[in-house]
Simulated scan of single mutants.
Amino acid sequence: MRYQASGAESSAFVKKTVLAALGAVASAALAAPAFAAGTPAGTTISNTATATYDLPAGGTGTVTSNTVTLKVDELIDVTVAWKDPGDVQGTAGGINQVLSFTVTNGGNASEAFTLGSIAALGGDDFDPAVTSIVLDTNGNGVYDAGVDTIYVPGSNDPTIAADGSITAFILSTLPAAANDANRARAELTATSKKGTGTPGTSFAGVGTGGVTAVVGLTGGKGLADGWYKIQKAAVAFVKTASVADPFGGTTQVPGATVTYTLAATVSGTGSLANLKVSDAIPAGTTYKPGTITLDGAALTDAADADAGAFTGSAIAVGLGTVATGTTKTVTFKVKIN
Protein backbone atom coordinates (compact mmCIF):
# COMPACT_ATOMS: atom_id res chain seq x y z
CA MET A 1 0.00 0.00 0.00
CA ARG A 2 1.43 3.43 -0.98
CA TYR A 3 1.12 6.35 1.46
CA GLN A 4 -0.14 9.60 -0.06
CA ALA A 5 0.31 12.89 1.85
CA SER A 6 -2.78 14.85 2.70
CA GLY A 7 -3.32 18.32 1.21
CA ALA A 8 -2.30 19.99 4.50
CA GLU A 9 0.87 17.89 4.77
CA SER A 10 1.78 18.58 1.15
CA SER A 11 1.27 22.32 1.61
CA ALA A 12 3.42 22.32 4.75
CA PHE A 13 6.18 20.44 2.92
CA VAL A 14 6.17 22.93 0.03
CA LYS A 15 6.19 25.89 2.44
CA LYS A 16 9.14 24.41 4.37
CA THR A 17 11.06 23.77 1.14
CA VAL A 18 10.49 27.34 -0.13
CA LEU A 19 11.58 28.85 3.21
CA ALA A 20 14.74 26.75 3.17
CA ALA A 21 15.54 27.94 -0.36
CA LEU A 22 14.95 31.57 0.60
CA GLY A 23 17.23 31.15 3.61
CA ALA A 24 19.98 29.80 1.37
CA VAL A 25 19.60 32.76 -1.00
CA ALA A 26 19.73 35.23 1.91
CA SER A 27 22.85 33.58 3.30
CA ALA A 28 24.55 33.80 -0.07
CA ALA A 29 23.62 37.48 -0.35
CA LEU A 30 25.05 38.23 3.09
CA ALA A 31 28.26 36.44 2.22
CA ALA A 32 28.77 38.49 -0.96
CA PRO A 33 31.11 41.49 -0.67
CA ALA A 34 29.50 44.94 -0.48
CA PHE A 35 30.74 47.83 -2.58
CA ALA A 36 29.76 51.34 -1.53
CA ALA A 37 30.17 52.61 -5.07
CA GLY A 38 28.04 49.83 -6.56
CA THR A 39 28.49 48.21 -9.97
CA PRO A 40 31.11 50.08 -12.02
CA ALA A 41 29.81 52.58 -14.55
CA GLY A 42 29.65 51.18 -18.09
CA THR A 43 29.17 47.59 -16.92
CA THR A 44 26.93 45.64 -19.31
CA ILE A 45 24.00 43.78 -17.76
CA SER A 46 22.34 41.23 -20.08
CA ASN A 47 19.72 38.55 -19.59
CA THR A 48 17.42 36.32 -21.61
CA ALA A 49 14.16 34.73 -20.42
CA THR A 50 13.09 31.12 -21.14
CA ALA A 51 9.58 29.65 -21.41
CA THR A 52 8.74 25.91 -21.51
CA TYR A 53 5.52 24.12 -22.42
CA ASP A 54 4.16 20.60 -22.94
CA LEU A 55 3.92 19.41 -26.56
CA PRO A 56 0.61 17.83 -27.66
CA ALA A 57 2.38 14.65 -28.69
CA GLY A 58 4.38 14.51 -25.53
CA GLY A 59 7.64 16.05 -24.48
CA THR A 60 8.52 19.66 -23.70
CA GLY A 61 8.99 22.67 -25.91
CA THR A 62 11.24 25.60 -25.11
CA VAL A 63 11.30 29.16 -26.38
CA THR A 64 13.69 31.99 -25.45
CA SER A 65 13.03 35.70 -25.41
CA ASN A 66 15.14 38.35 -26.96
CA THR A 67 18.16 39.45 -24.91
CA VAL A 68 17.83 42.70 -23.03
CA THR A 69 21.10 44.56 -22.51
CA LEU A 70 21.65 47.51 -20.23
CA LYS A 71 24.69 49.61 -19.40
CA VAL A 72 25.11 50.83 -15.82
CA ASP A 73 25.05 54.63 -15.63
CA GLU A 74 27.57 56.62 -13.66
CA LEU A 75 26.64 57.84 -10.20
CA ILE A 76 28.18 61.15 -9.08
CA ASP A 77 28.71 61.36 -5.32
CA VAL A 78 31.41 62.98 -3.19
CA THR A 79 31.88 63.64 0.53
CA VAL A 80 34.36 65.78 2.42
CA ALA A 81 35.24 65.16 6.08
CA TRP A 82 37.40 67.16 8.50
CA LYS A 83 40.01 64.70 9.78
CA ASP A 84 41.76 66.63 12.58
CA PRO A 85 40.80 65.21 16.00
CA GLY A 86 39.75 68.63 17.31
CA ASP A 87 40.43 72.35 17.03
CA VAL A 88 43.84 72.97 15.47
CA GLN A 89 45.83 75.08 17.93
CA GLY A 90 47.22 78.12 16.16
CA THR A 91 49.11 81.25 17.09
CA ALA A 92 48.02 84.83 16.45
CA GLY A 93 49.92 85.95 13.36
CA GLY A 94 50.89 82.36 12.56
CA ILE A 95 51.37 81.35 8.91
CA ASN A 96 50.75 78.00 7.22
CA GLN A 97 48.37 76.85 9.93
CA VAL A 98 47.08 73.48 8.68
CA LEU A 99 43.59 71.97 8.57
CA SER A 100 43.31 68.38 7.23
CA PHE A 101 40.40 66.92 5.22
CA THR A 102 39.47 63.65 3.53
CA VAL A 103 37.77 63.78 0.11
CA THR A 104 35.97 60.55 -0.84
CA ASN A 105 34.50 59.59 -4.20
CA GLY A 106 31.29 57.73 -3.38
CA GLY A 107 30.42 57.18 -7.03
CA ASN A 108 30.96 54.13 -9.23
CA ALA A 109 33.63 55.53 -11.55
CA SER A 110 36.86 57.50 -11.36
CA GLU A 111 36.02 61.15 -11.03
CA ALA A 112 37.89 64.46 -11.18
CA PHE A 113 36.98 67.12 -8.63
CA THR A 114 37.55 70.84 -8.31
CA LEU A 115 38.56 71.90 -4.80
CA GLY A 116 37.79 75.23 -3.16
CA SER A 117 37.83 76.96 0.21
CA ILE A 118 35.62 79.43 2.08
CA ALA A 119 36.78 81.33 5.17
CA ALA A 120 34.13 84.05 5.59
CA LEU A 121 31.54 81.78 7.13
CA GLY A 122 30.26 83.59 10.21
CA GLY A 123 29.54 82.01 13.56
CA ASP A 124 33.17 82.25 14.67
CA ASP A 125 35.47 84.86 16.20
CA PHE A 126 37.52 85.83 13.14
CA ASP A 127 38.16 84.86 9.52
CA PRO A 128 41.43 83.07 8.73
CA ALA A 129 43.18 84.11 5.51
CA VAL A 130 43.42 80.95 3.40
CA THR A 131 46.72 81.03 1.50
CA SER A 132 46.57 77.68 -0.31
CA ILE A 133 45.02 74.26 -0.69
CA VAL A 134 47.62 71.47 -0.75
CA LEU A 135 47.30 67.88 -2.00
CA ASP A 136 48.83 65.06 0.04
CA THR A 137 51.29 63.96 -2.65
CA ASN A 138 53.00 61.17 -0.70
CA GLY A 139 49.76 59.84 0.77
CA ASN A 140 50.91 59.79 4.39
CA GLY A 141 47.99 61.89 5.63
CA VAL A 142 50.30 64.54 7.12
CA TYR A 143 51.23 67.92 5.63
CA ASP A 144 54.86 67.90 4.48
CA ALA A 145 56.09 71.33 3.41
CA GLY A 146 58.08 71.18 0.19
CA VAL A 147 56.85 67.66 -0.55
CA ASP A 148 53.09 67.93 -0.90
CA THR A 149 51.75 69.75 -3.96
CA ILE A 150 50.00 73.12 -3.95
CA TYR A 151 46.63 72.75 -5.68
CA VAL A 152 45.92 74.93 -8.72
CA PRO A 153 42.29 74.73 -9.94
CA GLY A 154 42.05 73.44 -13.50
CA SER A 155 45.70 72.38 -13.48
CA ASN A 156 45.98 69.48 -11.04
CA ASP A 157 42.39 68.73 -10.09
CA PRO A 158 42.54 65.40 -8.22
CA THR A 159 41.07 62.32 -9.90
CA ILE A 160 39.78 59.83 -7.34
CA ALA A 161 38.90 56.20 -8.06
CA ALA A 162 35.47 54.84 -7.20
CA ASP A 163 35.31 54.35 -3.43
CA GLY A 164 38.73 56.02 -3.15
CA SER A 165 39.86 58.91 -0.94
CA ILE A 166 42.57 61.56 -0.86
CA THR A 167 43.79 63.93 1.85
CA ALA A 168 43.84 67.67 1.21
CA PHE A 169 45.00 70.50 3.45
CA ILE A 170 43.93 74.10 3.92
CA LEU A 171 46.79 76.42 4.90
CA SER A 172 45.92 79.73 6.50
CA THR A 173 47.43 82.80 8.10
CA LEU A 174 45.78 83.79 11.38
CA PRO A 175 45.46 87.50 12.26
CA ALA A 176 47.92 88.93 14.76
CA ALA A 177 45.07 90.73 16.50
CA ALA A 178 43.23 87.48 17.35
CA ASN A 179 42.75 86.97 21.07
CA ASP A 180 43.55 83.95 23.19
CA ALA A 181 41.00 81.12 22.79
CA ASN A 182 39.34 82.76 19.75
CA ARG A 183 38.05 80.20 17.23
CA ALA A 184 37.70 80.37 13.46
CA ARG A 185 36.61 77.97 10.76
CA ALA A 186 37.49 77.35 7.14
CA GLU A 187 35.60 75.14 4.70
CA LEU A 188 36.90 72.79 2.02
CA THR A 189 34.65 72.02 -0.94
CA ALA A 190 34.96 69.31 -3.61
CA THR A 191 32.82 69.61 -6.76
CA SER A 192 32.39 67.03 -9.51
CA LYS A 193 33.70 68.21 -12.87
CA LYS A 194 31.05 66.13 -14.66
CA GLY A 195 28.10 67.95 -13.14
CA THR A 196 26.14 68.93 -10.05
CA GLY A 197 22.50 69.47 -9.23
CA THR A 198 19.58 68.05 -7.34
CA PRO A 199 19.75 64.28 -6.83
CA GLY A 200 18.64 62.51 -9.99
CA THR A 201 19.87 65.20 -12.38
CA SER A 202 21.38 63.45 -15.41
CA PHE A 203 24.00 64.37 -17.99
CA ALA A 204 23.76 62.25 -21.13
CA GLY A 205 26.97 60.83 -22.55
CA VAL A 206 29.40 62.37 -20.05
CA GLY A 207 29.84 59.29 -17.88
CA THR A 208 32.59 56.70 -18.20
CA GLY A 209 32.31 54.89 -21.52
CA GLY A 210 29.74 57.38 -22.77
CA VAL A 211 26.99 56.41 -20.33
CA THR A 212 24.74 58.90 -18.61
CA ALA A 213 26.08 60.47 -15.45
CA VAL A 214 23.50 60.82 -12.68
CA VAL A 215 23.84 63.10 -9.66
CA GLY A 216 23.58 61.23 -6.36
CA LEU A 217 22.38 62.26 -2.91
CA THR A 218 25.28 64.67 -2.28
CA GLY A 219 24.36 66.76 -5.30
CA GLY A 220 27.83 66.20 -6.73
CA LYS A 221 29.40 68.54 -4.19
CA GLY A 222 30.85 67.80 -0.74
CA LEU A 223 31.98 70.19 1.94
CA ALA A 224 33.21 70.21 5.53
CA ASP A 225 34.37 72.81 8.06
CA GLY A 226 37.58 72.67 10.07
CA TRP A 227 38.35 74.83 13.11
CA TYR A 228 41.32 76.78 14.43
CA LYS A 229 41.74 77.91 18.03
CA ILE A 230 44.17 80.62 19.06
CA GLN A 231 46.78 79.84 21.70
CA LYS A 232 48.14 83.15 22.89
CA ALA A 233 50.43 83.19 25.88
CA ALA A 234 51.59 86.40 27.61
CA VAL A 235 54.19 87.00 30.29
CA ALA A 236 53.96 89.35 33.26
CA PHE A 237 57.43 90.27 34.52
CA VAL A 238 57.82 91.78 38.01
CA LYS A 239 61.00 92.81 39.82
CA THR A 240 61.24 93.42 43.58
CA ALA A 241 64.11 94.11 45.98
CA SER A 242 64.75 93.49 49.66
CA VAL A 243 67.63 95.01 51.70
CA ALA A 244 69.61 93.68 54.65
CA ASP A 245 72.06 96.17 56.21
CA PRO A 246 75.11 95.31 58.36
CA PHE A 247 73.18 96.30 61.51
CA GLY A 248 70.37 93.79 61.14
CA GLY A 249 68.05 96.33 59.61
CA THR A 250 66.88 97.29 56.14
CA THR A 251 68.62 100.63 55.59
CA GLN A 252 70.17 101.14 52.19
CA VAL A 253 73.68 102.03 53.36
CA PRO A 254 77.06 101.05 51.94
CA GLY A 255 77.76 97.44 52.83
CA ALA A 256 74.06 96.48 52.72
CA THR A 257 73.03 93.45 50.62
CA VAL A 258 70.20 93.82 48.09
CA THR A 259 68.34 90.70 46.98
CA TYR A 260 66.57 91.14 43.66
CA THR A 261 63.67 88.86 42.77
CA LEU A 262 62.52 88.51 39.15
CA ALA A 263 59.15 86.75 38.72
CA ALA A 264 57.94 85.77 35.22
CA THR A 265 54.31 84.56 35.12
CA VAL A 266 52.92 83.13 31.86
CA SER A 267 49.16 83.40 31.25
CA GLY A 268 46.75 82.58 28.43
CA THR A 269 46.87 79.19 26.69
CA GLY A 270 49.71 77.09 25.35
CA SER A 271 53.23 78.06 26.31
CA LEU A 272 56.07 80.51 25.65
CA ALA A 273 59.20 79.04 24.13
CA ASN A 274 62.80 79.97 24.90
CA LEU A 275 61.91 82.45 27.63
CA LYS A 276 65.00 84.20 29.03
CA VAL A 277 65.52 86.85 31.71
CA SER A 278 68.50 89.10 32.28
CA ASP A 279 69.36 91.96 34.63
CA ALA A 280 72.31 94.33 34.56
CA ILE A 281 74.19 94.86 37.82
CA PRO A 282 73.30 98.44 38.80
CA ALA A 283 75.96 101.13 39.16
CA GLY A 284 77.08 101.63 42.76
CA THR A 285 76.79 97.93 43.55
CA THR A 286 78.87 94.79 43.16
CA TYR A 287 77.49 91.36 42.28
CA LYS A 288 77.82 88.76 45.05
CA PRO A 289 79.24 85.64 43.39
CA GLY A 290 77.25 82.39 43.45
CA THR A 291 73.94 83.99 44.40
CA ILE A 292 71.84 83.25 41.30
CA THR A 293 68.87 80.93 41.95
CA LEU A 294 66.01 79.61 39.80
CA ASP A 295 62.88 78.56 41.65
CA GLY A 296 65.00 78.25 44.80
CA ALA A 297 67.72 76.08 43.22
CA ALA A 298 71.27 77.49 43.10
CA LEU A 299 72.85 78.10 39.69
CA THR A 300 76.52 78.56 38.86
CA ASP A 301 77.96 81.81 37.58
CA ALA A 302 79.76 80.08 34.71
CA ALA A 303 78.17 79.66 31.27
CA ASP A 304 77.84 75.91 31.62
CA ALA A 305 75.19 73.21 31.60
CA ASP A 306 72.78 74.90 33.99
CA ALA A 307 70.43 77.73 33.05
CA GLY A 308 72.24 80.65 34.73
CA ALA A 309 75.33 82.74 34.16
CA PHE A 310 77.04 85.94 35.33
CA THR A 311 78.49 87.77 32.33
CA GLY A 312 80.64 90.22 34.29
CA SER A 313 78.08 92.99 34.05
CA ALA A 314 74.72 91.20 34.23
CA ILE A 315 73.03 87.96 35.21
CA ALA A 316 71.17 85.86 32.63
CA VAL A 317 68.91 82.85 33.14
CA GLY A 318 67.23 80.72 30.46
CA LEU A 319 63.78 79.52 31.52
CA GLY A 320 63.13 77.31 28.48
CA THR A 321 59.54 76.61 27.42
CA VAL A 322 57.14 77.81 30.10
CA ALA A 323 53.52 76.65 30.15
CA THR A 324 50.71 79.04 30.90
CA GLY A 325 49.73 79.25 34.53
CA THR A 326 53.38 78.91 35.55
CA THR A 327 55.61 81.37 37.44
CA LYS A 328 59.39 81.12 37.22
CA THR A 329 61.37 82.99 39.89
CA VAL A 330 64.99 84.14 39.62
CA THR A 331 66.96 85.77 42.47
CA PHE A 332 70.45 87.22 42.82
CA LYS A 333 72.29 89.48 45.26
CA VAL A 334 74.43 92.61 45.05
CA LYS A 335 76.30 94.66 47.65
CA ILE A 336 75.97 98.42 47.87
CA ASN A 337 79.46 99.89 47.46
Score class of each variant (00 low, 15 high):
R2L: 14
E9T: 10
S11V: 14
F13Y: 13
F13I: 13
K15Y: 11
K15G: 13
K16Y: 14
A20S: 12
A20Y: 05
G23H: 05
A24T: 14
S27A: 14
A28D: 13
A29E: 11
A29C: 07
L30G: 14
A31F: 06
A32K: 04
P33K: 10
G38V: 08
G38W: 09
T43C: 01
T44M: 15
I45F: 08
S46L: 00
T48M: 10
T50V: 15
D54I: 14
G59C: 11
T60D: 06
T64W: 04
T69I: 08
K71L: 10
E74G: 02
I76T: 05
K83R: 13
G86I: 05
V88K: 10
T91N: 11
I95M: 12
F101D: 09
F101I: 07
A109K: 03
A112E: 11
T114I: 10
L115W: 08
S117M: 05
G122K: 06
D124S: 14
D124C: 09
P128D: 06
T131D: 13
S132Y: 06
I133K: 04
L135A: 04
D136L: 00
D136E: 00
N138R: 05
G139M: 07
N140Y: 06
D144L: 08
D144M: 06
A145E: 09
A145K: 03
G146T: 00
D148A: 07
T149M: 04
I150Y: 01
Y151F: 12
T159G: 13
I160F: 03
A162Y: 11
D163K: 06
I166S: 01
I166C: 00
F169H: 04
F169C: 06
T173Q: 15
T173G: 15
L174V: 02
A176N: 12
A177K: 09
A177I: 11
A177Y: 09
A184P: 04
A186M: 03
E187Q: 15
K193G: 11
G197I: 01
G197Q: 01
G197A: 01
G197F: 01
V206F: 06
G209T: 02
G210S: 05
V211S: 13
V215M: 01
L217H: 08
L217K: 11
L223E: 14
D225C: 05
W227N: 10
I230Y: 14
I230F: 13
Q231K: 13
A233G: 02
A234M: 10
A236V: 15
F237C: 10
A244K: 15
P246F: 03
G248S: 12
G248I: 09
T250Q: 13
T251L: 14
P254D: 11
A256F: 07
T257E: 11
S267W: 05
N274Y: 04
P282M: 02
G284H: 05
T286V: 05
Y287G: 01
G290K: 15
T293N: 01
D295K: 07
G296N: 08
G296Y: 06
G296L: 09
T300F: 06
A302V: 12
A307C: 10
T311Q: 06
I315P: 04
I315Y: 11
V317N: 02
G318V: 12
V322R: 07
T331H: 00
K333G: 03
K335D: 09
